[in-house]
Design a protein around this nucleic acid. Structure first.
Lengths: 356, 356
DNA sequence: CATGTTTCGGTAACCGTTTACTGCGCTGAT
DNA sequence: ATCAGCGCAGTAAACGGTTACCGAAACATG
């Protein structure tokens, strides 16, 4: 006599489909069918079942249901963190689209730690999630690409989809979906915007070399300059990191060395731009009278900076929604990239440069 | 002969514990025990099993595991949205603490819609989540309190915990945990801070009457004034909404009617403060020379405003972490409130008032 | 050598659903 | 009266694990 029924210590055992069946005087099959609503049931029977369900406050057990073959309906999103506005917006999009499709959204923060990422991918395989979405930039080493390819394989063979979101894909032989945005184009447009305002010395501030998010931005900046016949001097490319801290410190250093070698700054991100603005202002420079600044991301704070920051809008929420749609669309092509547009949102941090 | 084994159309069937057992030449019990690691297994046997697991790329099926009685390990967090910085930080805290305890974190956004909230609570019951955390302020009608009490009952009898986070509890007879912060105290401290700087006419801007988050703030402002023997005039309490839009518009209205009836503003939230700052500046007023402003929340943007905004810090991430700890701590008292401290973070938006 | 103790591993019931197949009672046609 | 057909509802296998209980072999002891 194996396995004696375990006594539920705290609280009464939650009621099962069998309890409902007993109370309603029908079989479990009937209860299941009433609840699923995909099978003809005589109205009086249906009513009795529904009544019993209500009386017992019955809810199905999703685990049992999943085990019996009804797929689980979960999407997972892995990001470095959730407080960075860009991630928060992507998560929001994912959650909303997932909810619309009746799915639960589990969020996993990795802190950019590959081990935690790996652990989460494994957990999601155990859960049989129908999609796992990995968001955000990284410096993509060969080892990491291999890692991703492995995830893709593993998830694919388990019937789950891997979606790479806000980062480039891995080529057609890796079974992953890709939802990306026009990163290079955004930087090109932003740079063109300040060039059109008459600036000629435009500095690119921030980002780290090799990073999947900043490299295309640098490329866009470079292309915009070249298109106007301007050579992107080495001293005009100031990389190192993202965020306010870097923007502030690097700008201060630059200022300490002498007058700024540029009349405008294109920043790798809004935080970086905010840091630069602060440093410039502390040095007595006016924005945008003396120096024009444009950011990237269109984080909510950008609009509240003083002056309100001209920046590049990334459709983050839409990106999240797209990722889920892609995962759930059986016609979606593995290996192809879906690319969303970006655009410059003009506010007050860029001024027309009259003289040269 | 009921139910013929369903043919897996796409991809090979994922391997089960039985496959592993067969390959390793042992019984399923042995495999399970090796994986659980809670039972003595002879090293050679263990090695064979592990080898088979690796070869087949086996992962357990959590649904089967859950069904067999091992609890599911999930916490859910319900918020209005995820992009509001306060919520994002709470979510972050929840996720981190949950991860530390080996739990998955599912986030559900309700858009402040009671129906969606209800639906999510039901879903989480189906999942057997070990905790559901509801975060954020509301105007708490009687009906809604009743609703919450029902959730609490339902979840409790299913063995899950309900945690109310960043909002007051429902009294000792409702089986819910409460993780809150010292809302009134924060407002009291903020108001005291500007009073100590010599201001006497201090306006409270923002919030909506009856809201669980703003009411205590108004109360704190009122108490601080009274403690200094100042009567909180009616015209000094300007409520209506939260956020930049309200802050901006209401301040403009006030300014249009004549000189501001105060030399300092305590805002219901940082967004509101930012809006007020903008309106004041547009009217030619200097911050803090002409008007001092303090916010509430300590959102990341507060530090980047110009001038950097003095505000009240809410330990949002810690709040999330506390909520999870409370839920998982069997000794936690239902009905008792755990209250985290708030404090004023002094930046540059409050100036000493010399003359009177 | 007989017997008591461990140590390790197998057997099979059970968790709560879903659903293929079967069967019962009626109705209406022949 | 007989029987095909239909509308409903029941039976029970299967999903993939966990674990209580049992038993065999290995070892220690008298």
């Amino acid at each position: 006599m194996p396995r004696k029924p375990v006594e539920q210590a705290d609280g009464e055992r939650r009621s099962t489909i069998r309890d409902v069946a007993a109370l309603a005087g029908v079989s479990v099959a009937t209860v299941s069918r009433v609840l699923a609503g995909n099978y003809p049931i005589a109205p009086p029977t249906r009513a009795r079942v529904l009544r019993a369900v209500k009386d017992l406050d019955y809810v199905v057990n999703v685990h049992a249901r999943a085990l019996a073959g009804v797929s689980q309906k979960t999407v997972a999103i892995l990001t470095r963190d959730v407080t960075t506005p860009f991630y928060a917006h992507v998560i929001q999009g994912v959650e909303q689209q997932a909810a619309q499709d009746g799915r639960l959204c589990v969020v996993c923060t990795t802190g950019a730690d590959p081990d935690r990422e790996l652990a989460y991918v494994k957990m999601m395989r155990e859960h049989g999630a129908d999609a796992v979405i990995i968001v955000g930039g990284v410096v993509e080493t060969l080892g990491y690409r291999k890692q991703l390819a492995q995830y893709a394989q593993a998830l694919d063979s388990a019937g789950s989809k891997l979606v790479l979101c806000g980062r480039p894909g891995l080529g057609p032989d890796v079974p992953a979906l890709v939802a990306h945005y026009d990163n290079e184009g955004g930087a090109y447009a932003a740079t063109s915007h300040v060039l059109s305002a008459g600036h000629e010395r435009v500095l690119f501030l921030g980002g780290v070399e090799g990073f999947t998010t900043s490299d295309p931005r640098v490329a866009g900046w470079r292309r915009a300059l070249r298109d106007r016949g301007i050579t992107p001097d080495k001293e005009l490319l100031q990389q190192g990191s993202f965020g306010t801290h870097f923007g502030y410190e690097r700008t201060r250093q630059l200022l300490k060395r002498g007058p700024l070698p540029a009349t405008a700054i294109v920043a790798s991100d809004d935080g970086c731009a905010a840091g630069a603005v602060r440093a410039l202002r502390e040095a007595g420079l006016g924005i945008p009278e003396d120096v024009s600044v444009v950011g990237y991301d269109d984080a909510p704070m950008a609009a509240h900076l003083w002056p309100p920051l001209t920046t590049v809008h990334i459709p983050a929420e839409e990106l999240g929604r797209t990722a889920v749609r892609l995962a759930l669309d059986s016609r979606a092509q593995l290996g192809r990239e879906t690319i969303l547009g970006t655009h410059v949102v003009v506010r007050d941090s860029v001024a027309r440069r009259i003289d040269r």
